[in-house]
Design a protein around this nucleic acid. Sequence first.
DNA 1: CGGACAACCTGGCGGC
DNA 2: TGCCGCCAGGTTGTCC
Length: 271
Amino acid sequence: MPELPEVETVVGGLRAAVIGRRVVSFTSSWPRQIVGMDANTFADRLVGQTISRLERRAKYLVFSMSSDYLLIHLKMSGRLYITQKEHEAQIDRWIRAVFGFDDESSMCFSDLRKFGRLYLTEDVEQITGRLGPEPLATDFSVEWFASRLARRKGPIKGVLLDQTVAAGVGNIYADEALWRARIDPNRAATALNEAEIKALHSGIGAALQQGISHEGASINWYRKADGSRGDEQNHFNVYGQQGKPCRRCGSPIVKMRLGQRGTHYCPKCQT
DNA sequence: CGGACAACCTGGCGGC
DNA sequence: TGCCGCCAGGTTGTCC
């Protein structure tokens, strides 16, 4: 589920509620979500720390605490909600962890598929160090992007999903970016010319920006921090649009399998 | 190092 | 209805 725009939306929805909050309790019903230490160690170390900042890095939420960073990755089905203590149980069926705060509110981590992960570390780089630049920041330059593509023989679609290339892009926004750039997802990354790389670079930015402006895509599990849905799913050009006419040329959108991922594109105008 | 693929989980959906 | 297989916004480990 959540890619860069969804995580960005969740971060924005949580920030006001968590900044300045001290963690007074932590419970987990699925300890395997905690990476690198057992649940008791995690809880003991976390409780008492105060949240000073909340940022997004790629698809991670990064909470700056008194002496550690708390990182959360939502993977496919993770949700984060702010709620009052007495309402925790009724949020949804898949609450795997609850962070209790000093003002009686809680942050609930719901995760149907149990792929989501929690990290507590003094050194945030240990977890985010291998990620590529933020695709919406200026250090994600066309030149840098081109240099990364030049050493990848495989299909461009797969390269867009590589978090060391465009950190935060996932399956939806990769397909949408390729449609915007009119590039066939099967094309070898090394075969793209300068104009195509430039178009793809700006296609990535435009697709992500549109996702953010619609507060993410709620196809299935993604929810905002207040439990409501995003709207981006109503604005897709290709993702999930198989059989429907291309908004640009009218010919039917096709879904295929590329790598292990469903891939949506217009065979007529993406070449 | 790169590529291919299985694994991690649960639930929804289409087909029979 | 019921069962079965397939699919899903992601990453990581293993093998070649």
